[in-house]
Computed example of a mutant assay.
Amino acid sequence: MGGQPHDADLMAAVTELGTALRQLVDASVLTTVPADQLRAAAADAQAVTARLAASQRPATQLPALDDPVVFRRVYSPVSGVGSALAPPVRIRRVEGGVVAEALLGPAYEGPPGYVHGGVSSLLMDQLLGSAAIAAGLWGMTVHLEVDYRRPVPLSTPLTMRAQVTETAGRKCVVTGTIATAAAPDRTLVEARGVFVLPREELHADYFGTITDATGRHRPPARPTDATALSDADA
């Protein structure tokens, strides 16, 4: 996955758990088992929760496997291999921007058979920020416009693209699209985002409590340290 050396066995275990949790979420959405089996499954889930809660990091401490410099965020709700919330989306750099692939299952449903519009917005925010980083820029989201051209189908391979279209001082403008992999030129969702580099005097206010996995204070110095955050006063 690139970046600083990390514990490969821990990464594999986090990925296995994330995959299992996503499978559990999908199964819970589609299941038709009776109430007694649902209650038994809930008890099992609570037991697993207790096991995982036995040792936890503070919310202000980055996970040991994260490396923001190379955009490795293992619990990102969009791209994190360890997140039960993430599809996950896989993002890669290409000439002129970034491309991503994902498949959204029933847990992301809005209108029957289609992806919830808020999920499309979440994916676009992540992808536009990634395009800014790929261009050597960065910023926090201060404005995001999303146009829904056509509904996005569930359980269908998707292709997403984004690229920087304007830069001016601390601000950059990024645009992107969502389409199916089978028809990449038929836009389903189109987005435009404005990202602004926080003023130097605001860094301590925004990130003063963040530490690395060892507990050392490590305020953001790179774009990827802040892409998950959004503030209109950036």
Rank of each mutant, 00 (worst) to 15 (best):
D36W: 10
R218M: 07
D225R: 00
F207Q: 08
A50Q: 14
A86E: 00
V174W: 05
V48I: 15
I91V: 09
V142D: 05
T209L: 07
V146N: 11
T177M: 05
T214F: 13
S79L: 11
A45D: 09
C172H: 06
E101A: 11
L85G: 00
G193R: 04
S79E: 15
A64G: 01
R216K: 15
P5Y: 06
R216P: 02
G215I: 02
T159R: 14
A35G: 11
R199K: 11
A102G: 00
Q56F: 00
V89Q: 03
V115F: 06
V196H: 03
D36G: 02
A191W: 03
G208I: 10
Q46D: 15
G82K: 10
T141V: 02
L24W: 02
D67R: 02
C172N: 11
A134Q: 08
G80P: 03
A182L: 05
E16R: 15
R93K: 09
L154S: 00
L24K: 03
R72G: 04
A20W: 04
S130I: 02
Q46K: 15
A35C: 08
V115M: 06
P153C: 01
S28I: 01
V89H: 04
P223Q: 01
V94I: 11
L154E: 01
R73W: 14
T49W: 14
G129M: 01
D205V: 14
R57W: 02
G215R: 04
R149Q: 06
P63D: 11
Q23D: 10
Y206D: 12
D225N: 00
G208P: 14
V98T: 10
A47E: 15
L30W: 02
Q23R: 07
L17F: 12
P68R: 12
L30Y: 00
S76C: 14
T224L: 13
R149E: 06
A35P: 09
M140K: 04
G96S: 13
L197H: 13
R222F: 10
R149N: 05
A234N: 13
Q37A: 08
Y206P: 11
T15Q: 13
R92Q: 06
A134P: 02
V33W: 09
L202E: 12
